[in-house]
């Protein structure tokens, strides 16, 4: 069952026809009931994201972008409205079904990395596979491959405390990718990183987006970071205010060449 699902994901990935709606959101509302006060976090959001897009979601804090991300990531259910993920209506699913979707189809990257402390990189990356009943040996194989794809070969047994911030975030990206998701949801992934490391992380996202066709939703409030995406959606007061393509998109790999490589020395310094 698990393999079947994983395979069907692979099939979808391998043929991302332009024009297949990955995410289709219609008139989404989210209201938090805090007893006496009702907070309208989202007031009717409609958005369509196609397969292979790289969307930056921007907005000030309180604009509703985080709420929107949580809904897209299937961590929460909308109060009203419809959310179609790859054509499937997920707004009415049970908690168990949502957990399964998060497990198989969505990869999360967080601002604070959210790695398990005192747990090796490879075990951190294995985590989603544990919940999709992948046997132990295959788990380790896939986790190692995933770590390799983000350039962390040889660091498999390092604990988060032994890794730099950039490396920790790369472990988190490897974890998000290990179950071959169709969407990666990144919530301020560069918020805790210095500028060069941020660009390195963006380089990974751009590569994943281009080479594997993974749809990427990137929440950020830094316009510098949003310029690495293909499309920018701006939130204000629970609504989408602007939705535009990025003009003059920055190629992270190119940007890295022009940046001085001071951080690598620092990384090595932290290592020893």
């Amino acid at each position: 069952m698990a393999e079947k699902l994983a395979q069907s994901d692979l099939v979808m990935e391998s043929g991302p026809e332009a024009g297949t709606p990955m995410i289709r959101v219609e008139n989404l509302h989210k209201t938090y009931d805090l007893g006496e006060v009702q907070v309208h976090a989202l007031r009717g959001v409609s958005l369509t994201v196609y397969s292979g897009e790289f969307v930056a979601i921007m907005g000030a804090s309180g604009s509703g972008k985080s709420t929107f991300m949580n809904l897209l990531g299937c961590l929460d259910r909308p109060t009203r409205g419809r959310y179609l993920l790859e054509g499937q209506d997920v707004s009415e699913l049970t908690k168990v079904e949502l957990a399964k979707i998060r497990n198989r189809r969505i990869g999360f990257v967080f601002q604070g990395f959210n790695l398990l402390p005192r747990t090796s990189a490879v075990e951190n990356v294995e985590l989603p596979l544990i919940y999709s009943s992948v046997p132990h040996l295959e788990r380790v194989e896939r986790a190692k491959a995933s770590l390799r794809s983000v350039g962390l070969e040889g660091r498999e047994d390092h604990h988060p405390a032994q890794l730099s911030g950039g490396q920790q975030q790369r472990v988190a990206i490897a974890r998000a990718l290990v179950n071959n998701p169709s969407i990666v949801v990144a919530d301020e992934p560069t918020g805790n990183l210095d500028s060069r490391t941020s660009v390195e992380i963006m380089e990974i996202f751009q590569r994943l987006n281009e080479e594997k066709g993974i749809t990427i939703l990137l929440v950020t409030h830094e316009s510098d970071i949003a310029r690495f995406a293909k499309r920018v959606v701006l939130f204000r007061d629970g609504k989408i205010r602007r939705d535009s393509l990025v003009e003059g998109r920055v190629d992270a790999a190119q940007a890295l060449i022009s940046l001085p490589g001071i951080d690598e020395d620092e990384d090595d310094g932290e290592e020893s």
């Binding site: 990531g73 961590l75 908690k95 168990v96 957990a99 399964k100 998060r102 497990n103 198989r104 999360f108 959210n114 790695l115 398990l116 985590l127 989603p128 919940y131 999709s132 974890r175 179950n179």
Partner: peptide, 16 residues
């Protein structure tokens, strides 16, 4: 608590 949150985000059900 954070660990639990992470586990849930990557697909752990309440039962897990």
């Amino acid at each position: 608590t954070r660990e639990i949150g992470v586990r849930m985000a990557v697909g752990a059900t309440e039962e897990d």
